[in-house]
């Protein structure tokens, strides 16, 4: 082997090595912007939040570095805070059940109706998704009170004799919450329905089953996973959504999200707000894990 070919081989080898290095580096370079966003603006704040929740809160300062479990103890012993946790869970549970029921019926309707209605209904379902939560709140805010549209409509149709107000009731809070989460639920369920062969319904009817029995014994088992996913999705959303219940519901309807805002912006108690946020995140994570395990159990059972 001459020195010249040796040098050429070396050159090729280094070139190839450089190419391989570049090839190995390429995915990381491409992922870099996304990873910076997630790690720097999600990872660091999350860790910071956990650390913050153990800091001290002394004489109206935002926080004093230290280490205490005081805020967590407070969270689970102070009736104000425990009530907020229970209220959040109760609201999320009822609102999600209502959302799934309405969303299921809505998706079923769109699935069964002729195709020409489909686009119209999908456009309708998209509307709450594309409107800002604040605009939704304000819309219902004009509908429910004494001088609102509902009261006027009922009064002029003669159904009631005096002005009525449903504003600042739990009912109003639920109406708003379900409105916000309905589209997510609807689209999850519609995608499940679209995977079902409609001839199954005919087969069931041909075999003599009335619609109610077809629903119970054919549709429900086929859509069970979808219901589960839609429910957990709604639950997670309603747990984190606090503006709607706090604006439409009664003054005493304190949710965890509302107390986080109150502690952070009103009371300037950063450790307490952080402790609350940590508990909320743990709750969200628990619901997601539970859904996943239920889902896999279900599918493994079917297979």
């Amino acid at each position: 082997m001459t020195a010249a070919t040796q040098a050429a081989d070396d050159l090729h080898a280094t070139q190839r090595a450089a190419q391989a290095r570049r090839k190995a580096l390429a995915p990381w370079l491409l992922m870099l912007p996304a990873l910076v966003i997630v790690l720097v603006f999600f990872g660091i704040p999350t860790l910071y939040m956990v650390r913050m929740s153990f800091n001290l809160h002394i004489d109206q300062r935002l926080y004093v570095p230290g280490f205490t479990f005081e805020h967590y103890v407070n969270l689970f012993s102070n009736p104000l805070f425990t009530n907020a946790i229970l209220t959040t869970i109760r609201l999320a549970l009822i609102a999600s059940l209502a959302t799934v029921a309405i969303g299921y019926a809505f998706a079923l309707l769109v699935w069964l109706k002729p195709a020409r209605w489909r686009l119209l209904f999908i456009g309708l379902a998209l509307a709450p998704l594309l409107i800002s939560e604040i605009a939704i709140i304000f819309g219902w805010w004009m509908f429910f009170p004494k001088n609102g549209l509902l009261s006027y409509a009922l009064l002029s149709s003669g159904l009631v004799t005096e002005k009525i107000s449903l504003m600042y009731t739990e009912f109003a809070a639920f109406v708003g919450l379900v409105y916000v989460t309905l589209p997510y639920c609807f689209f999850i369920l519609l995608s499940i329905f679209d995977g079902i062969d409609k001839r199954l319904l005919e087969a069931s009817a041909d075999l003599g089953a009335p619609p109610s029995r077809t629903f119970r014994e054919v549709m429900l088992p086929l859509t069970w996973t979808g219901i589960l996913v839609a429910f957990s999705q709604s639950f997670i959303w309603t747990m984190g959504t606090y503006a709607t219940p706090s604006a439409l519901g009664p003054d005493t309807l304190w949710t965890m999200g509302f107390l986080i805002q109150e502690q952070m912006l009103g009371k300037h108690n950063w450790p307490m707000a952080s402790a609350f946020a940590v508990v909320l995140v743990v709750g969200v994570a628990a619901v997601m894990t539970l859904t996943r395990s239920l889902q896999s159990e279900r599918t493994s059972f079917h297979v």
């Binding site: 704040p45 910071y48 946020a277 995140v281």
Partner: peptide, 20 residues
């Protein structure tokens, strides 16, 4: 990791970024 923030409540993300 990349999908996780999507499932976080806005109030938690806002609080985290604000204090950090």
């Amino acid at each position: 990791l990349i999908m996780m923030p999507l499932f976080m409540p806005g109030v938690v993300l806002g609080l985290g970024v604000a204090i950090a």
